[in-house]
Amino acid sequence: MSILSRTKSLENRCEEFLDITNESTQILLQGVETYLSGKTPEFEENLNKIVLLESRGDALRRDIENQLYTETLIPESRGDMLALLENIDNIINQAKQILMEFSVEIPHVPEQFHADYIKLSQHSAKAVDEVVISTRAFLVDPLNVRHSLNKVYFWEHEADRQSESLKRKVFRTPELELSEKFHLRYFALHIELMADKAEDVADRLAIYTIKRSI
C-alpha cells in the first residue's frame, strides 16, 4: 500500500521535493561543464539557479515536516519520512555546495582532467537520479525498491572508482604544485560526496523496506 495514499497534498509536495532534487543534479552537471569550458556567465546562471533550488528545497522540506506533524498524517511512518527528507535535502545542499565552491575558489583545472571531472559528476548525478527513482517507488510501493536501490549502489561505486582514478592521476602529475594537487583533490572529493549522500538515502530506504516487510 502507498505510504501517502491518504494524503494527496502531502504526496504532491513530496513529488515536488523530488523534482527539485532531480533538477539540482542536472544544474550541477551543466555547472561543472560550463565552469570547465570557461563559460563564466552561463556558469554563474547555473549557480544562481541551484541556490534558488536549494532554498526552495529547504522551505518545502520544512513545510512537509510541519504538515506531517500538525495534521498528524501517517503517524506510523512520519519519523522515517522526516529522516528521508532530511537525507535527500543533504544531496541538494551538496550539489549547491559544489558549484558554490567552484565560484568562490575558481580552481585551476588543467585541461587533461576536464573529462575526468565531467565523468565523475555524471556518475554522482546518476546515483542521485537512481535514488530519486527509488524514493518515488518507495512512496508508492514500499516493498519493491530493491531493484532501483541496486542501481544507486552501482553508481556510487562507479563514482568512487572514478574519483580515485582522478586523484591518482592528479597526484602523479609532476608539473603540478602540491597545493594545486590538494585543491584538485578537494573538488573531486566534494563531487564524489554527492554520490555518498545518495547512498545514505538508499541505506535508509533499504531499512524502511525491511521494517515494512516484517
Partner: peptide, 16 residues
Amino acid sequence: KRKVYRSDGIALSNRI
C-alpha cells in the same frame, strides 16, 4: 572565502 581567493600575494596553500 571569495576575498581570500581574490586577494593578491597569497599562495594557494595559504588560501586553502
